[in-house]
Amino acid sequence: MNGSSFMRPAVILLFVAALAAAPFAVNQGLLFLIGIAMLQAMFALSWNLMFRYAGLASFGHAMFYGIGGYAVAAIIFHGFPLPFLLAILLSTAIGAVVAFVVALIVLQRAAGIQLAVLTLALSQLVLLFVSYTDFLGRDDGLSGLARPVLDFGFFTLDLRSPTAFYYFIMVAFALVTAGLLWFVSGRFGRVLLAVRIDSERAAFLGVDVRRKRIFVFTLAGAIASFAGALAAPWAQIISTDSMSWFNSAQPMLATLLGGAGSYWGPVIGAFGLILVNYFTRTFVGLSEFMVGGILLFVVLLAPSGIAGFFEMLRRMRNRTRTASAREHNQ
């Protein structure tokens, strides 16, 4: 038995406790950023779901984040009489449907670099479409979005309070993270890993590779839309930035930084990026410089990211431990 089987639950518990304590410990600005970090972490997890478990590198994933955001923003902005939870659900569903259609078309043949280029091009097309649509506020987007009050009959949840909304996001983040972890740890996750490692070999086990990939792409699109749908009312604004190539790069950077080989890598990376941005906010350009520098460092010295780096340390420690135990026995 190695140390990490005790360490991991402890670290996760500590992380959850820190998130829960944040509203009492930090100022409004930082609280807002931690909320964004959780949403970006979900976004990054969904990207790595495709990357790690199906071998699909999408370069246009922000398309779905933006679709979810715009859907919910339009409902709020134009005052459609739809309860907030249903609006979130509907936005997620729209993202899932679009992702499914994109997957049907794009995954027909494309993989690797073709997939990257196609998804990037599609996301730019959607962005262009949005920037010409009056209903969606053209280039300016939709701003001044009112945060909702959830009415459950027997009690109400007033999300106009930043703390309440923060906890709302935290619960969503916990549910998505736990649900996804359960999903990838099970039978389906095993099959997906096989598809990514050697899709041809997996086919000879009777696995319908294309169908699995379409499913994963759709699920990832749905989760990204869900994150986007929460981000719009949290920030009270949505603009085409949400679907820009820059935002598409965020989950990739987070995954690279945190480590694609670990489930928690994208979460670590997303929080890391937000922290770098926060601590360098007063120096224009410093955050890009820092992010660039850190990434260079990670790629050169810890190619499997922060999570991979800790894993490597653990293995090294175990190895020295078994080696010294062996010496001891002799």
Partner: peptide, 16 residues
């Protein structure tokens, strides 16, 4: 499936 354990390799095939 090189990254997976020997056991998981076989489990995959049985489950499929």
């Amino acid at each position: 499936f090189g990254e997976l354990s020997i056991f998981t390799n076989v489990v995959l095939a049985i489950e499929a």
